[in-house]
Write a protein that binds this DNA or RNA. Structure first.
Length: 297
DNA sequence: TTCCAGGTGGCAT
DNA sequence: ATGCCACATGGA
């Protein structure tokens, strides 16, 4: 077992609050010192950002990790190889409305999470709110997931795999409080195991269309959840998930009728192209920030 | 109390 | 193909 230490990485376009609080992931918690502790790929780490003298670069500090994990896990998880400055510049030029939204979430990055965990997380997310989604996922992992480590006195557990979930009954899941979604998880776990999880794993390298069709075949996954999985775990950056918030923001800013998801989808394709999913995150974050500010006043 | 949440499955047209 | 509606749970 290699000794864990702290890794320091120069980053730009990077804000932990925005990355972990923009609805794409549910497993990171803010510590009292402002850092975030969470788990991904069965590894528990703590992250904080130090601002340098030189304004435009920052240092990401990852505690409780190894150089190997930085290289093999965190660089990809945090999408550090992608040039978000260039993408933001391009999107701002294309669309003035989006330009404003981007200014609210300059530090957002799209994570590349584990496909299975993302499948489960977003099945749970349907017709549900973010605090409760987090609770459900934490309950599920604590009850049936593998112990992954301790940090600052707290225990962390991985998402149980399909081989574990396929054997559970709805009664087993009752204490998790998933509601009617419990049976969807069990059904989906069984389906994924039909080919030993290979189609799901290979979906990262498949075309977006093929991956989308496969995801739709799973119980509890419709168009919106499928697009979230494509975007947040498979690097399909053009995927444009349309949920209640995006409907709201597309209606308010672009005057597209609230219920016309087809028009929103085609607008995104035209205006945002291959970065539709990134644009969607800026819009999602923006409308939620506006609502939050409205609620306070 | 009623409404709502990162929607989908099932059923009727 | 499209339009309803039920669905568990908990916070506002």
């Amino acid at each position: 077992m290699e000794l864990k230490s702290e890794a320091r990485i120069k980053v730009s376009t990077f804000d932990l609050v925005q990355i972990f609080d923009c609805g794409q992931c549910f497993r990171w918690e803010k510590e009292t010192d402002g850092s975030y502790t969470g788990i991904a790929y069965k590894k528990v780490v703590n992250m904080r950002v130090e601002t340098d003298e030189n304004e435009d670069m920052k240092t990401l500090c990852i505690e409780n990790t190894t150089p190997e994990d930085v290289k093999n896990v965190w660089t990809r998880y945090l999408d550090l190889s992608r040039d978000y400055e260039a993408i933001k510049g391009e999107l701002k030029q294309k669309d003035e409305i989006l330009s404003v939204a981007i200014s609210y979430g300059e530090g957002i990055r799209i994570l590349q999470q584990e496909p299975w965990e993302t499948v489960i997380s977003f099945i749970i997310s349907q017709n549900n709110n973010i605090p409760r989604i987090k609770k459900c996922i934490a309950n599920l992992c604590e009850a049936y997931g593998e112990f992954a480590g301790n940090y600052r006195g707290k225990s962390y557990y991985a998402m149980p795999g399909p081989e574990i979930m396929a054997k559970l009954t709805e009664a087993d899941l009752a204490p998790i409080k998933l509601g009617y979604r419990a049976k969807y998880l069990i059904e989906t776990a069984k389906s994924v195991l039909n080919d030993n999880g290979e189609t799901l794993i290979n979906s990262c390298n498949s075309s977006s269309e093929a991956a989308y069709e496969y995801l739709l075949s799973l119980c509890g996954i419709g168009p919106k959840v499928a697009h979230c999985i494509l975007l947040f775990s498979m690097g399909k950056m053009e995927s444009f998930p349309i949920d209640v918030w995006v409907k709201r923001v597309m209606n308010q800013l672009y005057n597209i009728p609230e219920k016309d998801a087809a028009a929103m989808k085609s607008y995104a394709q035209e205006a945002f192209g291959q970065y539709g999913g990134i644009a969607q995150q800026y819009l999602f974050y923006y409308i939620r920030k506006l609502e939050e500010e409205k609620g306070k006043s």
